[in-house]
Nucleic acid binder design. Structure first.
Lengths: 200, 200, 200, 200
DNA sequence: CATGAATGAGTCTTCATTCAT
DNA sequence: TATGAATGAAGACTCATTCAT
């Protein structure tokens, strides 16, 4: 297997990325990917042993990157004497920065894992991320007085979701680094400021 | 005879709704729907003459409802001496109300048409609604001074999208009328207030 | 069964004739016939117990007519002191006349049984008629000297076929009685004269 | 590998030819063809990407051959100082020769394209050829005096059709080259002589 | 008499995957 | 390594026909 040609591997990955992105994992066909890559369908199986594995070859890196980000965020939290103030700082400085870097590195892959993964093990990732964020928000932003206000509400969940979807939309319409950076910052600022005013 | 027929028709519609909702239009199979409905695949074609028609039998009503809502919103606007104040009123009173009623009536159908319609004529509906909303916001909320701030930004687009996704999330997690009503109101309030503070 | 409504029966027959004629027996569908007739598919089975029977309901009359014609021609032959002279008379006067009358009465049906009967018991009728004609020609026209000329030839067979196809083409393009009569006569004259000159 | 492939390809083509010939394009089924060829239905699609393409793989060569023949006939005409005399020569010498060669090369294919092509783009070919021939005849054979005789008649059309059907019948019953050659010549002679005597 | 309901077998075609070369 | 060959399962949909009402 170590004799695989890297250029072909790259061609397959590129073709697959494109195809998964437009058709979704389920509707994408190995044939189409092979045609786009300019090789035979069967040859793809020398590089990736199934459609799913091919998908993971693209999606896993972002996944691990995202997992690491999560850790970093927690560490950031642990290292500071955490309070509302530096929470806001985290979400208006640190998070936008790492998000931007993530997008920069994994634009297509991020969209893939979040929007086109139905039928794979990452199907639920968006929802899980939203839930994690939601917990984070609920624990850190909301004053005890206002917590009752959220009883049974899913607003926090929605806002977390919205943040993610916002990042996704920026990723989808990406123009250049500057543009992306600014939009991410605005988006985070918008939501964090909104939450603070709404819930504290 | 009539009884039977309606009975089965409903069963098909229910099975189809469920299947489209979980698999999406493209991946949903007539076989699976038939099996869920407890009839033979071929018999479905006595009720709906194609997979697409079956989808539209479910989706068309919401679509027309949404189209009417759009008209109502425009009329609301036309009837008032329109300014920022009653714009906010519209989006914190009128819009939540009609949205709530829509969801109440068309819960599954709304999710269907917005999230599971790839491959049908409604594929682009969400994007189109977001664009319409965006225009509405941009024209009515943003002060001229701040307009330059949005140059090249897609924040407004994202916020419109977020509103829609928010409604969708509420619809997905629907618990009861009260719950839905409150969440919609909070969501609208959150976003409208946020925009006003951000852009005026 | 004697309670069947004649008008519906006629409607079915008309619709079936039209459909068989354009699609052929094999490709014609009971559904389409029913739709054309304005009744339900299942109701057709109250009138004709299968697609084949429906076909025969249209085709049988022509078939029997054609069978009778054959007998008549033989009788004509038997009644005359038969020789080349009155053979030609038969084919330039008697045959055109009965052919014309046949077409007049059974235009669509004749085309049906000859051209659209693949899959039914009349599949071979055209070939059989040609063979019969061929025998007739060979026995009556060809001088013994020239018979050797036809050894192994299928020209006579072709000419018989041509006569039939010619009648069919006239039937297909039928304009009015006068037109049909003239064309049939010309066609017969052309072929009989041709054969005589060629083979005697 | 190459051997195998061509082998199977030929088997498919043979099976398809046979099936199309007996069932017609419309009624022929890929299943039956596959079974006859001794392979799985799906495997056929590795060789021909649709039923239509499979048909054309057989039919196109004859079509192009026929198109070329047409050109040749026209050139023959253009090169000669054209008159009734060499028109007859063309149809008693040149045309039989090329027809014979065509049949020799494309026996099955010719029958296929003329008789079994309903549902394909060649559906109308026979009719078109007949019409072309008819024009040719009408322009070259018929004296002005007799032209009126043909007013409204379709006899010329029938004769053109008859010539084609005659060739088809010879093709159907083909025994050997000698036999075919003789029959074609007789047929052409018969018709051309007949027309001349009839219409000049 | 008339019909909608029902179906199993069949239509063409695509799928992901395996195998021999 | 690379590929054409091969396949069974599945895709949407149509068919002639039967049956209960």
């Amino acid at each position: 297997m170590q004799f695989q040609k890297d250029d072909i591997r790259e061609k397959i990955l590129a073709a697959a990325g494109e195809t998964f992105l437009t058709q979704g994992f389920g509707k994408a066909s190995m044939r189409e990917i092979a045609k786009k890559a300019g090789i035979s369908t069967s040859n793809m199986y020398n590089y990736f042993k199934s459609k799913e594995e091919l998908f993971y070859a693209i999606a896993d890196p972002v996944f691990h990157h995202l997992a690491n980000l999560r850790k970093e965020v927690f560490e950031y939290k642990a290292n500071k004497d955490f309070n509302n103030e530096n929470f806001m700082q985290q979400f208006t400085e640190f998070v936008p920065k790492v998000m931007f870097e993530m997008i920069r590195k994994y634009r297509k892959e991020f969209l893939l894992i979040m929007d086109c993964s139905k039928g794979t093990k990452y199907e639920q990732l968006k929802k899980m991320m939203a839930t994690a964020m939601e917990t984070n928000f609920t624990d850190n932003i909301i004053s005890k007085k206002k917590k009752s206000l959220l009883q049974d509400s899913c607003l926090m969940h929605i806002l977390a979701m919205n943040l993610i979807e916002g990042i996704l939309e920026i990723t989808r319409n990406y123009k250049n680094d500057e543009w992306a950076k600014n939009n991410i910052e605005s988006l985070m600022k918008y939501h964090i400021r909104g939450m603070v005013q709404f819930f504290t």
